[in-house]
């Protein structure tokens, strides 16, 4: 079976983003960009399934600017086999991304599409579920364990009350949570090898998908700022302050 992994190029999780002074968005010039952390976990899981003999080929796909090539190369260096770049500048909303992915799925026929649960820039948490619905497939979101068995997969999910396990008929969609695995670092030889792996270049038009956003961002603001308070010297002082405030 093939596994497809959509990977998004996002602001690195270590960057503390700043809102632009004209409130049109956040400052992205000269900011470090990386693969969305949840997507790294998805690539890792795909590689582990391949290493376990459950999958033959891993395709990484990104919808984004030309520079998303780098994100695909990261996935290829980790161990994916080939990439597809759908070049698009500007906002790519989850619904439009899911429509493009659907067409690619129909061509490539993967048994599993592994996505991140959430892109850490838009914090939408939608794309995998939307793709599942467009395809009429089952979904196992927020996965912390994936066990493929023949034509089904058991997915253990991180839910508000604890953990839940669902059994899905393949083909299926899986979205990753933090504790699914710890992604590997690409070795230097693998980074070199990845340079020769193929990346197919496409445009949204090739899929007939309209990228026009449905949501217009009117403005982007700083959240209300929280001022640092005071340092207390002792537990007694702390308890006194909290009693004064009436919270305990």
């Amino acid at each position: 079976m093939k596994i497809m992994v959509p990977v998004k190029r996002v602001v690195d999780y270590n960057v503390k983003v700043r809102v632009k002074s004209d409130n049109s968005g956040v400052e992205l010039a000269n900011v470090k960009m990386s693969m969305n952390p949840f997507d790294e976990i998805a690539v890792e899981e795909a590689i582990r399934l391949k290493e376990a003999g459950k999958a033959e080929e891993i395709i990484v796909v990104s919808i984004g600017p030309k520079a998303a090539q780098e994100t695909l190369r990261t996935g290829l260096a980790m161990g994916a086999d080939r990439g597809i770049l759908v070049e698009h500048d500007g906002v790519a909303e989850p619904l439009a991304v899911a429509k493009i992915l659907k067409t690619i799925v129909e061509e490539e026929k993967p048994g599993i599409v592994l996505l991140g649960k959430q892109a850490i820039d838009d914090d939408c948490n939608q794309t995998g579920q939307m793709l599942a619905q467009l395809l009429g497939w089952a979904q196992g979101t927020f996965a912390s364990e994936v066990a493929v068995d023949g034509d089904t997969v058991n997915v253990t999910r991180e839910v508000d009350g604890g953990l839940e396990t669902v059994k899905l008929t393949l083909p299926a969609i899986i979205t990753t949570d933090l504790r699914l695995n710890e992604p590997r670092y690409a070795s230097l030889p693998n980074i070199m090898k990845a340079k020769r792996k193929p990346i197919d270049e496409k445009k949204p038009d090739d899929f007939g998908v309209d990228m026009a956003p449905r949501l217009t961002t009117l403005k982007v603001e700083e959240p209300p700022k929280r001022e640092a308070g005071i340092k207390v010297e002792s537990v007694e002082e702390l308890v006194g302050k909290l009693k004064e405030k009436g919270v305990i």
């Binding site: 989850p94 619904l95 948490n125 939608q126 939307m130 599942a132 979101t141 956003p213």
Partner: peptide, 22 residues
């Protein structure tokens, strides 16, 4: 919640609507 996040995007996709999350 993890429940709402799980099924709502499927509703949005079928209606061809962009979900507004959170």
């Amino acid at each position: 919640t993890t429940m709402g996040k799980n099924f709502m995007p499927r509703v949005a996709a079928s209606l061809d609507v962009a979900q507004i999350s959170d």
